[in-house]
Each structure stands twice: as structure tokens, then as C-alpha cells.
Amino acid sequence: MLKELAQEKWSGKINSINIGATKEEGGSRTSVVKIGGQATLPFIFNDGDIPHRPVIAAEVWDIAPNDWSSTLNSELEDVYSDPVSWSKKLIDEFKVDLICLKLQGAHPDLGDRTPTQEVKLVKDIISNVGVPLIVIGCGDDSKDNLILPACTEATKGEKCLFGSAVQDNYKTLVAACQADGHNIIAESPIDINIAKQLNILIHEMGFGLDKIVINPTVGALGYGLEYAYSIMERARLAALTGDKMVAQPFICFSGPEAWRAKEAKASIEEHPEWGKELERGVIWEVLTSATFLQSGADILVMRHPKAISTVKGYITKLMEIK
């Protein structure tokens, strides 16, 4: 009779990262989010320590999104115009752990908001909410290189998480985060080799490996989810067997990805056989997010309040197995 489950002995572990700094630590946050530190695969408590639970960040934009699905609009439309109320709503009512502010409106094609405007917004949020902050650029390299350093400077000491450093544009953001004491998101296109290469490049600039969070780029359910899963699994296995260059926590943008899927967005008129879009979109975001929890996500970036509540409950249940 087998008496015990076979145990894996891992030699490596994932780096621990603190996002946010309290007054005592030189910032102004009322809470600090701790992630990473795992010495085992996701939720395999038997093989090693899992010191922290995965966390959820709510995605908030600097401009009102005009292409989000009606399911999202029905919950959030009233706060779109005010990112501070948007953040507060999700913190107060749905208890998200962090706010992920996407500076989409800085994009030259989507409003071209200035560094001054974005700095003011970031400061507003910092002074009105207590949770730690993730700040994501607009995706236009040259514009991001203007707005992000301005924002890192404006939030110096708050230990935010800034993104995204990519292989062809990482130097400016790394230097800015280094100077202002922030953490950084290193984004790679579903490729473990590029993820590792980027970490090496960032580290070679003198940036600590323990301040990097990997965005492995994920796909929604039905859109390459299993591929993203296998890349994350490979990275985790490498990290747990001692490769320090991929031993970083993961951030997964499961919400934005899920809401890009037509199965999440399409109205019941378009596809009557798919059922009510109100439930369908939320289910899509929940399933996508839940899968990435199982792949090792440390931070999930999500959109819909109902999906956030459901996944939060799921995380609690998973952590109870312990």
C-alpha cells in the first residue's frame, strides 16, 4: 500500500516581491501586496511552501473605454469618466488587492494625453486610494518613454509596479524604475526564451531580479490559453530547478484578454445559441483567470466585478486546501 504521496524536492524558489510601501516604509499605502516566494508548483502544498495567495488587480483606464462590451458597461459605465471613483468602487465594493491603471489615453491615436495630465491622474489616485498601484503604458514605445518616467518620478517611494518593459524597449523604463525605487513588469510574447532574455537584459542594467514580475502574455479561453499555460509551466519548472533568470512571479492580464474574445462580447442577437451575454462574458473571464491561477499567476488583472468576486472566492477555496 502506498502510504505517502511521492514528494518533489525542488532546489529553487520564486522571488518574493512587495508591491506598495506604507508610511513607515517611505510611501503612503495602507496595505502592501506580497507575492511570490513559492517553493512548489501552484497549489501543490505538499511539496513546498506557498507563502502568499494570488492577488487580483482591477483594470482602470485614464479615459473612458469606448469599445468595451455592454456587459462591462452596465456595471462600470457610471465610473468610466472618473478613474478615482472607478478605483474606489472596485476597492470598496469588490475588495480588489491592487489597482492596475492603464494609461491608454496617452496613445497618440487615442487622445494623446500629456505627461502632465497622466502625472496628475496618478497622483490623484495615489492620494485617494490606499491599495498599491500598477501603472501600464499605452503601448506606443516613444510615448511610453515620455509618460512612464514622469509617473515613476511622481510616485517615488510608493514601490509601484510599472509596465511594460519589452525586448526592444526596456532601457528607459528600467532606468526610471531603478531611480525611483519601483518594481517592473517584463513582457514577452508567449516565449520562455524571450522572457528569460529580457530578464537578463534588465538585470544587466543593474536592476534587481527580485523586483521583476513576468508578463508572459496570455490568451483567453479558446485563444491559445493552453499554449500560454505550457509556457508558464515550463518557466516554473525551470525556476524551481534553480534557474534564477526565470524565478519571477507572473502577472496575467486574464481580464483584458477574456474580453477580447468574441464569445465574451457577442450579443445574444448575434448568437442566440450561445446564451445570455451577461453571464457568458463573466464566465469567460472567470474561466480564463482560473486557468492562469493553476498555471502559476501571482497577479491577475481583471475587469468585471462579478468575475472578480467569483475568482476571489475560488482563490480562497484553493488556499484552504493547505
Binding site: D191, N193, I194, K196, Q197, I200
Partner: peptide, 15 residues
Amino acid sequence: MDEYVAALFFPHTDK
């Protein structure tokens, strides 16, 4: 393909 992408680095992704 995996080997190739790993080699697209100086000297190599796997030091």
C-alpha cells in the same frame, strides 16, 4: 524553433 529562439541572444539564453 525553441533552440533557435534560445540562440537569438549573445552568446545564448542558457548561459
